[in-house]
Design a binder for these strands. Structure first.
Length: 234
DNA sequence: CTATGATCATGA
DNA sequence: TCATGATCATAG
């Protein structure tokens, strides 16, 4: 099976990688990517490497998904549906630290159980994450950026305590109809920021009087101070 | 519109 | 310099 995958990987041009059946198989595929450049992986998949990411912001993430055989598409599921593992690339600056915050999910109270931490969408998404560190210094051409060692991560008890506290305090405000007033300054590890095509996009929200209101969609993001810890513990 | 994938770009 | 607020592409 491993041989088949390696052959498939080395020879494929437009052939879709099958999703990994086990965690070990997934990690083996990650090993194949470690130390390779984005240009090498891109060429192997028959993808064009853009000059920069300005108009292709999700390109790196989509490339790694394809290379590892993620199968969730744009459904609201973990990237590896069978393994219940979420995939996230982690852009690394020249100092070896996360360069950007990490988007997790949209802020919403329409979901069932969205008012309870243990059933929350955010907790489910962060319950098991495969982080792929990737060079992201602007001075390195996209195709020459190296892929780092993958980190398969579950939040520690200490980390989850903070995440839960942040999530509950932020969601308290959302429920009170204050979502549009929340700024990115709030939260220790989690923050809420705009998440939309632009600032004019509107979504259904709740006003301070509990009525329906049109607001600019926002999302939960992990601060770099949090993802920095993962690099050290991984 | 919502979901997926994120990074850009400017003000402080 | 860097975090906040804004934005880009694509599928359904």
């Amino acid at each position: 099976m491993l041989v088949e995958c390696l052959i498939r990987f080395s020879t494929s041009q437009n052939i879709k990688m099958l999703p990994p059946k086990t965690q070990d198989e997934l990690l083996a595929r990650c090993q194949q990517l470690t130390g390779k450049t984005l240009g090498q992986v891109s060429a192997k998949l028959g993808w064009q490497t853009p000059v920069d990411l300005r108009r292709y912001k999700g390109w790196v993430g989509a490339l790694i998904e394809e290379a590892l055989g993620a199968d969730a598409g744009n459904q609201a599921e973990p990237d590896f549906t069978q393994l219940a593992i979420e995939l996230k690339t982690l852009p690394i600056n020249r100092q070896g630290q996360p360069k950007e915050s990490t988007y997790v999910c949209t802020v919403s109270m329409q979901q069932n159980g969205e008012l309870n931490w243990h059933q929350s969408w955010l907790r489910r998404k962060l319950s098991h994450v495969l982080w792929i560190p990737i060079e992201a210094d602007a001075e390195i051409p996209l195709a020459q950026r190296y892929i780092g060692q993958a980190i398969l991560w579950k939040p520690s008890v200490e980390q989850e305590v903070v995440l839960q506290r942040d999530w509950e305090s932020l969601m308290d405000r959302v429920v009170l109809g204050e979502q549009s007033e929340i700024t990115a300054k709030e939260g220790d590890y989690l923050q809420i920021r705009p998440k939309a095509a632009n600032s004019h996009i509107v979504a259904k929200g709740i006003s301070e009087y509990g009525l329906e209101e049109k607001i600019n969609p926002k999302g939960f993001y992990l601060r770099t101070s949090f993802t920095q810890q993962l690099l050290q513990q991984g």
